[in-house]
């Protein structure tokens, strides 16, 4: 495979721009990053890592929580084997993962972290999102 010039890269990327954007929640598991990304409302966001598991996505204009990146998902489940029950037929419900993440904290989380998890949990439950998932060895 050849390395693309910036112009060729731009051309390839713009092929993606031809379809109408969707407005529903998005969640997907990225095997390269071993992470699950979740957006309850597609839009521009900035990110802030709150602990070892979760990076929160905030709406760029309103600072409202609109999503998250759950990092090292398979490592998290390997470190906490009891949470393997969260994975059913290769899929994991995000709401369950947030509860497990909060429950596995070794130190008492502060109020901001708890409120953030609560908000993410609400959004995940409202949208019933789940992501396909595979444990990486």
């Amino acid at each position: 495979m050849n390395t693309l010039s910036n112009e060729e890269f731009a051309k390839e990327i713009m092929k993606l721009a031809n379809e109408t954007p969707s407005h529903g929640p998005i969640a997907y598991y990225d095997q390269d990053g071993d992470c699950i990304e979740f957006l309850s409302t597609p839009g521009n966001f900035y990110a802030e890592r709150i602990d070892d598991l979760i990076t929160v996505y905030y709406d760029e204009k309103t600072d409202e929580i609109i999503g998250s990146l759950v990092k090292d998902v398979s490592q998290f489940i390997k470190k906490n084997p009891r949470f393997a029950i969260l994975v059913e037929s290769g899929r994991v419900r995000l709401a369950h993962l947030f509860i497990a993440g909060l429950g596995s904290q070794t130190q008492e989380p502060n109020d901001i972290v708890i409120q953030t998890y609560k908000k993410l949990l609400e959004q995940a439950e409202e949208t019933s999102v789940e992501a396909g998932f595979a444990v990486i060895n």
């Binding site: 990327i13 721009a17 954007p21 529903g24 990225d30 990053g33 990304e37």
Partner: peptide, 21 residues
């Protein structure tokens, strides 16, 4: 990651695509 582009960026519209571009 073309997968991320397809699954995460394309649904977010042109702005997200241009961000990647």
């Amino acid at each position: 990651s073309y997968e991320r582009l397809h699954k995460f960026f394309k649904p977010r519209g042109l702005g997200a695509v241009l961000e990647c571009r």
